[in-house]
Design a binder for these strands. Structure first.
Lengths: 291, 291
DNA sequence: CATGGTATCTGACTTAAGTCAGATAACTGT
DNA sequence: ACAGTTATCTGACTTAAGTCAGATACCATG
């Protein structure tokens, strides 16, 4: 009757295999074998270096070389030596290649649209897909330093305040996401980190350099789709490393009892509770970690 | 930055392709090509008829024939003519084949367990997987008549009462799931339907034959993972067809204002509101449909 | 029992995909 | 400038997968 976790996982795997098989087949619609199509698409998605393509698709160097030659003969790509290193080659789409790539893109987009349109609650389906994709891609999550005033950062902060509003059952001013003292989260004073999973922002944290005695950790957010992956810990660890690099003698943060998972995480990773160090009305817990 | 629905869908597709690729590879761990392994597993999972295997895996008849021969030579399966039709052949695992199949099963189970163990919130991950798998498998959902006292039926009813308890914020007696007048939902008086998606029960409905004037529709439930697929409508349509078959002149049902989606669905599919026809304290809406 | 239809099998092919051992040319550090 | 390393390419293979046209044996029907 299939209700134990393993059976449920395997049901998912079966469904995914079927769906992915169909997906592969749709790539065959343009009369080109799958391997060639995959390379063309890898190039279209910005994998220009031959070695990069090889690593991305997990193929043998000889094979990639041959397939590239085929695409060149078709007039879809051209390869030139790397300007800094004559051994390496970079591949790029010709005009015809761009058109062909666009056709593949259109195919994929159409497929996605059709699948989503069939579902009466596409939001729920997408949320579930985000969660599964994040779980599968957990080892490819990258932390990137971003200017807190950049669009991605603003998006993360918007989500962060939305989450707080939900937890506190109180409205937060959306304009808060345009932090007036954003420059304290830019090097050399501080930093703002965004976690990306396959180009999708799924978490952030800010390190604010406000005074000489300590740095402040602010706005730690992890997207619902990425919870359970240990991302908050990873963000904190990286923040700590950067704080050390910036010669900060200690870190402080404040938090609210509405965020119990965060509090537990702080306690577990060497933070100690201290007395209130600011007069902000929201927080009711204050932590410090000496570096 | 990838936040539009199509981009999110495609992110999922990429993650799934990668994961499924790894999954295929794990099938290669036993030194047998994928095609052969897939056939062995199809047989292990009860696809005995050669034609059935062909349809299930979508392979050419000549290819399947050859692969079966290979497995026979390995001593893993044996084929015998079908008792009712000498043209058809049925394949079955030998003792060695059973062992080999069990090894593949163990591999799959281990994989699933490892993936789940890595996630700190496996329940959320599984719920998301159930939802995605149901969406992908929507065309394979089957409605089956089941005795309402059987284990699967009891499971569905348990979920149904759990859902009610959540919506009404009130406890329901779990023992209710063992319906005292279950025999009114068994042919020829009535029927109980369970919806299966790849062996997983994801919905149910009961048709109760209580009197000559009308049949009663009870306990319509759709699992959270299966919402948005139009399953409730499908269950109701089938119930209606069976009611006609059983010569019921009309159908009635009662429902509660805490279930607005259901009420909307009834109105849209030809039900008309009528006066209270029982003295049950819970419902506040009553519907009828003449057949 | 002849006829047309069906399920499976065989043999002869093609194509895709992958492997591996050098070859070649460019880089790096001493 | 030379040895060792690295990135890509070439050629000669193997294996997996799939296609297709018959062949064979069995079934259903008049």
């Amino acid at each position: 009757m299939m209700l134990d976790p393993v059976a449920r996982f395997r049901r998912f795997a079966r469904a995914a295999v079927t769906e992915v098989g169909a997906l592969d087949h749709s790539f065959l619609g343009r009369g080109r074998p799958l391997g060639v199509a995959r390379i063309l698409n890898a190039i279209g998605h910005g994998k220009t270096d031959v070695g990069e393509i090889r690593a991305y698709l997990g193929l043998d160097s000889g094979l990639v070389s041959r397939l590239l030659r085929g695409l060149e003969d078709e007039g879809l790509i051209e390869t030139t030596p790397h300007p800094d290193d004559g051994r390496r080659r970079i591949a790029s789409l010709t005009r015809a290649g761009e058109a062909e790539f666009a056709a593949y893109e259109a195919l994929s987009n159409e497929r996605a649209e059709r699948a989503l349109a069939r579902h009466a609650n596409a939001d729920a389906l997408l949320a579930a897909m985000d969660l599964v994709a994040s779980a599968f891609g957990r080892d490819q999550i990258e932390l990137v330093e971003i200017d807190p005033r950049a669009e991605v950062a603003r998006y993360c902060l918007g989500e962060y305040y939305g989450e707080l509003a939900r937890r506190f059952e109180r409205d937060f001013d959306v304009r808060l996401s345009a932090d007036p003292d954003a420059e304290t989260m830019v090097r050399p004073r501080g930093v703002f980190l965004v976690a990306f999973s396959d180009d999708m922002p799924i978490g952030c944290v800010g390190l604010k350099g406000t005074c000489a005695e300590y740095g402040e950790v602010k706005r730690l957010w992890v997207a619902p789709a990425a919870r359970g992956l240990g991302l908050a810990k990873r963000l904190m660890d990286r923040t700590e490393a950067i704080a050390r690099e910036l010669q900060m003698p200690a870190l402080r943060l404040d938090t609210n009892k509405a965020l119990p998972e965060a509090i537990a995480m702080y306690r577990k990773s060497g933070w100690t509770e201290i007395d209130r160090f600011n007069d902000d009305p929201y927080p009711d817990f204050f932590f410090e970690k000496r570096l």
